[in-house]
Amino acid sequence: MSDLPLWATLPATVLLVAGGLFALTGALGLLRLPDFFSRMHGPSMGNTIGCGCVLIASMLTASAVTGRLAIHEPLITLFIVVSSPVTSMLLMRAARYRDRARNAVRPGRAPESTDD
C-alpha cells in the first residue's frame, strides 16, 4: 500500500479508528458489565459496527489497490449477519435454561434473572 488515492484512505482511516474503538469498547463491556445477560450486549457491538467498519475499509483499500471494485468482502458481512443471531439466541436460551435448572436444584437461593 505505497501510495493509495485520497478518496480511499480518508474514509478508510476514519472507519478503521471508529471500528477499532467500538470493538474495544464492546470487549471492555464484556469485562465490566455486572451479569451475564448484560454482557451479551458487549460482543454484539464488535460483531455489528466493528465488522461493518473494517469490511467497508477493506473494500475501499482493496478496490484502490487492484483498480476495480472489490466485491467479495460483503460475503463476510452476510455471513456474520446470518450467523451471529443464531449464536446469540442459542446462548441466551442455554443461559436461561441453566439458570432455571440451578435455581430448581438449590431452591434456597434467590432466583436471579429469571422471569418465570
Partner: peptide, 13 residues
C-alpha cells in the same frame, strides 16, 4: 491503531 484495539479486545475476551 485498529490492530492494537482488536488485540486489546482479544486480551479482554
Amino acid at each position: 491503531f485498529a490492530q492494537m484495539c482488536f488485540a486489546l479486545a482479544m486480551v479482554c475476551a
